[in-house]
């Protein structure tokens, strides 16, 4: 039955000896001996790449060094423990008292709350946009989400304190009333009715970091290889099962990186929180209904005191902590993403 399978014309039969050139053998350069050619384009690009790498590292080190050098004299003059105290009293340069503790609490609490709220919502939006929404709807919707990222943070601050805070007060009161036995929902060091709490700030930050987390996750989810998606569907997976077996594992690392980008933005956010958080000198209750300031908003609040180098140094020391915090967050994110490399 295979008799009809004649070899195709030209397959394998075309190795006629090449005609000799009249000039005789051509001396070809010996490949083994010739030195590797350095092409100018390669060299230029290599130089540029190495140069920018070195420049970035140098710049970051310089910033760190600058912060450190400025902070050291103030840290020496500090009358309280910088890492162990929460008092902030820098009005008198001779009796300098500054501790990072309360600022650190408010910074971490607002950012983590924002992340906890934004992560599931972003995940939902990203999955909806990539796998559920009809195409005609997905594009404009994605555009609107991206537009959120373009809103200046001062607008978010105004909206947060003027519109969102009053609306959230009943929610906050309900939480405090029903879940008050959990320390996070107990009374804080400012009034819940005023709205200038970590709770409000966290919600506003969540809205602010939603677009970046959504956009990055969407990009990653969209890249899930088609053959994996089809492999799952062909096995009889429902849509959700397909997402769970292919899209989510594939996009996990990207989603975590996206969240860390968002966290980085939340940690550094200044103006919005400056407007929202009620200032207080009271000791925080480690509750979502605390007020106070984040590291960044405290620095902004203290701008008037920067003319004195010792006072300025106190704020710079706080800035240094924020700097290290974002570094640690990034390193953690990398560790999470690098884990389980084998399955990448």
């Amino acid at each position: 039955m295979r008799t009809a399978l004649r070899p195709r014309a030209g397959s394998g039969g075309g190795s006629a000896t090449a005609p000799h050139t009249p000039e005789g053998p051509i001396s070809t350069p010996n490949i083994a001996q010739s030195r590797p050619v350095r092409r100018p384009g390669d060299r230029l690009f290599r130089g540029a790449a190495v140069g920018s790498g070195v420049f970035i590292v140098a710049l970051i080190s310089a910033i760190g060094l600058f912060l450190l050098l400025q902070a050291i004299p103030s840290l020496r003059a500090n009358q309280v423990g910088f890492l162990t105290s929460g008092v902030w009293n820098t009005t008198s340069a001779t009796d300098l008292q500054f501790g990072i503790l309360y600022l650190l609490w408010v910074t971490v609490a607002t950012s983590v709350l924002a992340l906890a709220l934004a992560m599931p919502i972003s995940l939902g939006i990203a999955l909806f946009l990539t796998h559920y929404a009809p195409r005609r709807l997905a594009r404009p919707f994605a555009y609107v989400v991206d537009l959120l990222a373009a809103v200046p943070s001062i607008i978010f601050g105004l909206w947060g304190i003027k519109v969102l805070a009053p609306t959230l007060v009943p929610v906050a009161e309900w939480l405090n009333h029903n879940l008050g036995f959990i320390p996070l929902f107990a009374e804080g060091n400012v009034t819940i009715a005023g709205g200038g709490t970590v709770f409000t700030a966290g919600v506003v930050l969540a809205v602010m970091i939603l677009p970046i987390i959504t956009a990055v996750s969407r990009e990653v989810f969209e890249r899930t290889p088609r053959e994996h998606i089809e492999g799952a569907l062909a096995l009889g997976a429902t849509k959700w099962e397909m997402l769970r077996t292919t899209v989510l594992p594939f996009g996990k690392a990207g989603y975590v990186s996206a969240a860390m980008l968002g966290l980085g933005r939340a940690l550094g956010e200044t103006v919005a929180l400056y407007l929202i958080l009620s200032a207080t000198t009271a000791v925080p209750e480690l509750s979502f209904f605390d007020g106070g300031a984040t590291i960044a908003s405290k620095i902004a609040l203290g701008a008037a005191e920067f003319n004195n180098p010792l006072t300025a140094g106190a704020y710079i020391a706080a800035g240094l902590v924020l700097f290290l915090l974002t570094f640690v967050v990034n390193a953690l994110a990398r560790a999470v993403v690098a884990g389980k490399k084998e399955y990448a």
């Binding site: 089809e230 492999g231 077996t245 594992p249 594939f250």
Partner: peptide, 21 residues
């Protein structure tokens, strides 16, 4: 269609095992 795909298996041109499994 999910039921149909459960009873009719498919093997693709490019091997596509789930990489995370």
């Amino acid at each position: 269609p999910v039921e149909v795909r459960r009873t009719i298996g498919m093997v693709f041109q490019r091997p596509n095992p789930f990489p995370t499994m």
